[in-house]
Design a protein around this nucleic acid. Structure first.
Lengths: 190, 190, 190, 190
DNA sequence: TATGAATGAGGATTCATTCAT
DNA sequence: CATGAATGAATCCTCATTCAT
């Protein structure tokens, strides 16, 4: 019986980690994360066996949230361009709405604490988008680049776009459109 | 803090820092950096007043090296497209030839140890390119986006390109061309 | 703290403690002991108010088991030499058969967690042997040393003997005899 | 140049460790050891890479001191019995004079932190005594037991003797003689 | 100026014990 | 009564920085 491991507390720790890591980097002390999460220093380790584990779980946690954001109302039946646009829009929207999570994802991605396996696992969530791009390459709509390259282009241009929106929130619409325009031109078969 | 006699030692420290930070991140101990540089761990602090200072100097050191690589044979008199292509090529070439420096630049860029001022100062070295893009926007060759946005697009697509080359050295030529093609399509006025 | 229903669980904990302490020392975590015992980590504290209490009880538990081993078929009516030989044999036999318990007894004996009172209490179980030696000293069979000294000599030589048997199980018989021979010569009145 | 690693400080740490471990066991905190040694908490780790290393070095340090005590005026040319008596006397004398070191040696010997290799190395210092016993066995003076068994008997009886002296300092002479008498009877060929 | 020993604040992690369930 | 989640004090160790040499 005993007290069951609370999912709330686990999430509180993950969210506290987001806050702290966004602000102070991957080296943010576990003690501070615990404090912000409102749990004891030791409790963090009942939910994550060690800091690395926390970092890896955090990476997947954010990726999963992003996936949900992008996939919840994914228009499977629409045209490819519309679907790509939808992916772009939802990604940018999420990034703008969750600047800390975006930063943390980037910091974790750079860190050698997050394993390749975790990164791979994180990417798998986006298989739908990957497949869509893959098909569009096959049918000649997009340039004949490796799908992973096209995906990476999307990621990097969307990130750049988000950075500019973050710096100029008033021009969210403008940069979102400009970014997509550039992106689309970059990948579409001429 | 007067400029110390040995400029060699200063560079040895910077280069050691590149090695260590590339491999172990910004948290690489100063003691290890000093050891690899072949100087005493205290000596590091006669060349850099503290670790943050070292990190900021390192950022500028690498940026400067990159600038030299890109600008040494910059074809001032050629067409804009050729100059942009030259910038792209030299950037990618440098990045491929100096994977550690590229990683370090990225890690330092993410870190909150490198000040905004330093980052700004690092960008100033690329004023020529910035200006060229600026002019090309004005004369209608490029899309009418803020120059900083166009520059950022270049940076992010070039980085993406380098990542793929790093993963597939045999296809250096292919990805360099594909990346540039995408980039050029992204920015050129339709 | 009222005597809990399950005496089995109490013993399970004591036996688990033997295992863990033999292998990892007195600092073996209560959580691990509980786990091996198959009880919740909190339950351990319903059987023993704290770790020190567990350690002290464990000391007595093993001593008591040893006493039973040595006394169950104690030949009260035989000659002194035979009785001493019987004590020696049963002690060595027990130690060889229960190497972990022997180690734990030694580790607990060294530890400052086990109180003097507990140690005294543990010795009282061997009053019969003590008395026998005492009488034998009085009637001139044994050297005129304090009984406690003679007892200690027996303990240390038996321990040494067991160590050698542990290292050379094939020569159990040999070392048992050699050890007793040395012991008897050491204490008998010349 | 810099400050040279002070041998004094190293010894201060070892001696502080003796004090603390004698009193509080192998789990004595490094911080407290450092404090008693009069050095910073961190300094301990410039002399010993970690606590285990400290423990192993401490074991050898004490063994070496014991060896010096026993060997400094070892009467190589005297009769075997005299030499054995000398070894016994100097051992007991050392143990009585250094009760803490004796306890620490015992505690370290029990601990799984001290490696077998260290223990072996610690024994090698007593090769002279070992050889003497070996020869005496060969020429029939001592019982025909393995030398290591005879050595162990000496160690255990001497330890027992020291324990009694520690408990009754006024009877040092008595127990020393009684102990040796028992020991000699135990090992000499009848 | 160069060195690396010295330092203590800081950080990850463990663990006996408590207490909600 | 049984459980194991919750806790924070305690512990080992690291590291930027200082300073004696």
């Amino acid at each position: 019986m005993a007290r069951p491991k609370s999912e709330d507390k686990q999430k509180a720790i993950l969210n506290a980690a987001i806050q702290e890591i966004a602000e102070h980097g991957v080296s943010a002390p576990t003690a501070r994360i615990a404090k912000i999460a409102g749990v004891g220093e030791g409790s963090l380790f009942t939910y994550f066996s060690n800091k690395d584990e926390l970092l890896n779980q955090l990476y997947l946690y954010i990726k999963e949230e992003l996936r949900e954001s992008m996939m919840s109302d994914y228009p499977k039946t629409e045209s490819v361009q519309n679907r790509i646009r939808h992916a772009w829009n939802t990604y940018v929207k999420w990034g703008v709405a969750n600047p800390q999570k975006r930063i943390v994802l980037a910091k974790l991605g750079m860190s050698n604490k997050v394993s390749e396996q975790t990164k791979t696992q994180g990417s798998e969530a986006f298989a739908d988008i990957f497949n869509m791009i893959s098909e569009s390459t096959a049918n000649g709509l997009l340039r004949n680049y490796p799908t992973s390259f096209l995906s990476a282009i999307m990621g990097s241009l969307a990130d750049t776009t988000m950075n500019f929106i973050a710096g100029n929130p008033a021009q969210t619409e403008y940069f979102n459109n400009a970014g997509f325009e550039a992106f689309w031109s970059a990948i579409v078969n001429a």
